[in-house]
Amino acid sequence: MTEAVEQLKSQARVLSTSERAELAYFLLSSLEPDKGEGIGEAWRAEIAGRVAEIRNGSAVGRPAEEVLAELRERYP
């Protein structure tokens, strides 16, 4: 690793947990290709719609134990 990377790692170690999480998110996001404008707004709209379905009772849920058992069976 370069000296600059080693210095950054050393500085990152003294950050708080939330600061390190924010930095990690920034770094990982910087590796993703630009997905264009509007993606964030599309996700906010999707989430708002799902929350509305939960609140008005139209969403059909499943017990977590059932979902986890299904996943464990599918991905042993």
Rank of each mutant, 00 (worst) to 15 (best):
residue 75 Y to A: 00
residue 45 A to W: 08
residue 43 W to N: 14
residue 70 E to M: 11
residue 48 A to F: 14
residue 70 E to G: 06
residue 34 D to S: 04
residue 51 V to K: 14
residue 35 K to S: 03
residue 15 L to H: 05
residue 33 P to H: 07
residue 19 E to Y: 09
residue 18 S to F: 02
residue 71 L to A: 14
residue 32 E to L: 03
residue 43 W to K: 02
residue 4 A to T: 12
residue 61 G to Q: 08
residue 62 R to A: 12
residue 2 T to I: 10
residue 67 V to N: 01
residue 53 E to G: 01
residue 14 V to F: 09
residue 34 D to E: 05
residue 50 R to F: 06
residue 56 N to E: 15
residue 76 P to Q: 14
residue 17 T to K: 04
residue 76 P to S: 14
residue 20 R to I: 00
residue 75 Y to P: 00
residue 73 E to Q: 13
residue 26 F to N: 05
residue 15 L to A: 11
residue 42 A to E: 11
residue 26 F to E: 15
residue 20 R to P: 02
residue 74 R to P: 06
residue 50 R to S: 12
residue 26 F to A: 11
residue 33 P to G: 10
residue 75 Y to V: 00
residue 75 Y to C: 00
residue 39 I to W: 02
residue 19 E to L: 00
residue 30 S to H: 03
residue 21 A to C: 06
residue 51 V to C: 05
residue 48 A to C: 04
residue 18 S to C: 01
residue 74 R to K: 10
residue 46 E to D: 09
residue 9 K to W: 12
residue 31 L to C: 11
residue 32 E to N: 15
residue 46 E to A: 06
residue 47 I to Y: 06
residue 4 A to F: 05
residue 55 R to Q: 13
residue 28 L to T: 14
residue 39 I to V: 09
residue 75 Y to G: 00
residue 66 E to A: 09
residue 35 K to G: 11
residue 56 N to C: 04
residue 48 A to R: 07
residue 6 E to L: 13
residue 25 Y to E: 15
residue 10 S to H: 07
residue 52 A to H: 15
residue 64 A to C: 07
residue 65 E to N: 02
residue 31 L to K: 12
residue 23 L to A: 01
residue 73 E to T: 07
residue 9 K to M: 10
residue 27 L to C: 12
residue 49 G to H: 11
residue 28 L to Q: 12
residue 22 E to C: 04
residue 35 K to A: 10
residue 19 E to D: 11
residue 57 G to Y: 08
residue 7 Q to R: 14
residue 2 T to C: 08
residue 7 Q to V: 07
residue 1 M to I: 12
residue 8 L to C: 05
residue 54 I to G: 00
residue 37 E to V: 14
residue 21 A to N: 03
residue 5 V to I: 06
